[in-house]
Design a protein around this nucleic acid. Structure first.
Length: 587
RNA sequence: GGUCCCGUAGCUCAAUGGAUAGAGCAACUGCCUUCUAAGCAGUAGGUUGCUGGUUCGACCCCAGCCGGGAUCACCA
């Protein structure tokens, strides 16, 4: 039984004993400025007791103190009844946790979930926004795995469409057969270069056409380079061998580049879906829906869904020329996924909040098509990452490149280590610290909130950051090494230890770790885990700084403190791993 | 204009309807002969955008305003 359960039981019997019937008891963690760990809010009980909140609290407190040995003392402040639980309760809880090597992970619950993240276009390298997306999706997947789900990590790769044709067009015109090898550039960056080049020429051409008297809309259509890209898209749909070849080659470059980026990021996928392989299925399903009357056709041949009755708009699903749009292929992809994994209990789409409307429509369409699993689909919508200069715009060159940023973070970590005079910081350690700082920075904020990334200030290693937490872990590991050198055996259980307030607080925090993971999972919010890890590290540092562990004379207490430290390090490592962040042994 | 999200210390962020709204950064003051100072302790910093309402109790729920953002394409 956890301390929570013990107290709840004691409280329930006290309330029944005092007032003759049970009531809903509101127990919450005690505000740190008061003594105790658990607080009963007494206001709701005044109706039952017929007394003031203070008196009610006092009555209940006395009854609990007499009726059980769970509580060692209590105090009442206003209507709040604060309990100090007995050391016996805490140390037995600690023994329980200590004896459970898999504390924090739940046994398999037989459920399956699919988490989609990343899902980039294949025409340019990954940027800061993708980093938030990937870290978020990866962490949510890890958190669900921790609570017992079987997790399928997937992405849909937007490998076809006008965007890649733009890069292809520019490469064909100006590339001189350049390859990543010949240019010594990562493939995704090379393809991105031509995407930018396309845009530059496109702008020049439309400007000239406008000067010669064309309307803006007309000029945009008539620009020769755009006409080339559109022609390539049509050739692609007609399976033109030469175009397919070029398309495959350039996508191949991108995949190779992405692969390196993902590897450094520490994310991976169990299965990849490609738009080029799902869009036709989507088209089929839309045509089926047309037959069954879910959709309708306009005079020009385009196919639409009418969602006005649901408070939404009409939405095009097939263009008048029969080609599919984004929505079409998303319908296909969703159906394919539930075909591939019929027993999944949920599908999470990690996609920015600018697509909220899109997913609302998608899920509604799937429901209208009669797929019961439509309600299992969830859009994990997250806010944009803004720069001090405003929104990132790839066309204006204000994007923060993922590869560059990761490299900068690792360099910054190396520099920091050097300035602090750390001994022999290994490359692996710098990598863990630099990337850890970046991941933590992006994950500690509630996903649905927009966040600001200031390149000058965000590379920070003190305070509420991953390096702070990692450092706490490394310090504990140093303690453990010392204990092992001295052949101290700190496994096993402890009793009769007189606990310091900081030790009680630590055990209490550790004890709440499993429910923290559950909370993070149900809210799809790794920030809950991040904030917990920070709280735990902070609490431990206070303990570390007030108690001299190896200076302790009592052997049992010494061993207990080492065991408590070891347990803290273990949970820090576990929690950080859920965020995709490693913890070095030394730093 | 319709729909949705956000507004908390100078800055970046916390706070299952509960106590005197908390951290970090930046500023200032202390603490390394000690288990790692990427640390700890302290000072200062607030009308939680505004106005009402519900409640014993509201940053949180409701209504209205103000400010910021997203979205409403035969784009993705």
């Amino acid at each position: 039984m956890t301390p929570d359960d013990l107290l709840k039981e004691a409280l329930e019997s006290a309330v029944v004993g005092l007032f003759g019937k049970s009531a809903d008891l509101q127990i919450q963690p005690t505000n740190p400025q008061f003594e105790g760990s658990h607080t009963l809010v007494c206001f709701p009980l005044t109706k039952l007791s017929g007394k003031s909140p203070e008196e009610t609290g006092k009555l209940i407190g006395e009854a609990v103190l007499k009726g059980s040995d769970t509580v060692s003392s209590f105090n009442v402040v206003k209507g709040f009844l604060n309990f100090v639980l007995s050391d016996k309760v805490w140390s037995s809880r600690f023994n329980q946790i200590n004896a459970n090597p898999s504390f924090g992970t739940f046994s398999p619950n037989g459920k399956e979930i699919m988490v989609e993240y990343s899902s980039p276009n294949t025409n340019k390298p990954l940027h800061l926004g993708h980093l938030r997306n990937n870290f978020l999706g990866f962490a949510v997947a890890e958190i669900y795995r921790a609570i017992g789900y079987k997790v399928h990590r997937v992405q849909i790769i937007n490998d076809r469409g006008i965007h890649i044709c733009k890069s292809m067009a520019a490469w064909k015109l100006f590339g001189n057969a350049e390859t990543p090898a010949s240019a010594s550039v990562k493939g995704d960056h090379l393809v991105g270069k031509y995407y930018v080049l396309f845009d530059r020429h496109y702008k020049e051409q439309t400007a000239e056409l406008e000067k010669s008297g064309l309307a803006k809309e007309q000029a945009e259509k008539e620009a020769p380079i755009m006409k080339l890209a559109v022609a390539m898209l049509q050739q692609w749909e007609n399976r033109d061998p030469e175009i397919l070849q070029l398309w495959q080659t350039m996508n191949g470059w991108v995949y190779e580049g992405f692969g390196k980026t993902y590897e450094r990021m520490g994310v991976s996928f169990d299965k990849l879906y490609y738009e080029s392989e799902t869009y036709l299925l989507g088209k089929e399903e839309v045509l089926k829906g047309l037959e069954s009357g879910v959709f309708f056709k306009k005079e020009d041949g385009s196919v639409w869904v009418d969602l006005t009755a649901d408070g939404l708009d009409q939405k095009v699903l097939l263009r008048s020329d029969g080609t599919s749009v984004y929505m079409t292929q998303d319908i296909g992809t969703a159906i394919l996924r539930f075909r591939d994994f019929p027993s999944i209990d949920g599908q999470v789409y990690t996609v920015g909040n600018e697509q909220e409307y899109h997913f609302k429509v998608l899920f509604l369409i799937l429901k209208k098509l009669g797929f019961k699993w439509a309600e299992k689909c969830f859009h994990l919508s997250y806010g944009m990452v803004d720069l001090p200069t405003g929104k990132m715009k790839s066309r204006e060159g204000t994007v923060v490149d993922a590869d560059d940023l990761m490299e900068e973070m690792v360099q910054a970590a190396a520099k920091q280590s050097q300035e602090l005079g750390k001994a022999e910081p290994s490359e692996a350690t710098n990598e863990m610290i630099g990337l850890g700082a970046l991941k933590y920075f992006l994950l500690k904020v509630d996903p649905k909130k927009r966040m600001l990334f200031d390149p000058n200030e965000s590379i920070q290693m003190q305070g509420n950051t991953a390096p702070f937490i990692q450092y706490t872990h490394a310090r504990i590991r140093a303690l453990i090494r010392k204990a092992e050198e001295q052949n101290l055996n700190f496994s096993g259980s402890f009793s009769g230890i007189k606990l310091e307030p900081g030790e009680r607080a630590l055990i209490s925090l550790i004890s709440r770790y499993p429910e923290t993971i559950t909370l993070a999972a149900s809210g799809y919010s790794p920030s809950v885990v991040a904030n917990y890890a920070y709280e735990l590290a902070k609490e431990y540092n206070q303990f570390y700084q007030t108690v001299r562990i190896f200076g302790e004379q009592d052997n049992q207490t010494l061993l207990f403190r080492i065991a408590l430290s070891a347990q803290t390090a273990k949970i820090i490592r576990h929690a950080m791993a859920l965020l995709g962040i490693g913890c070095p042994e030394k730093m």
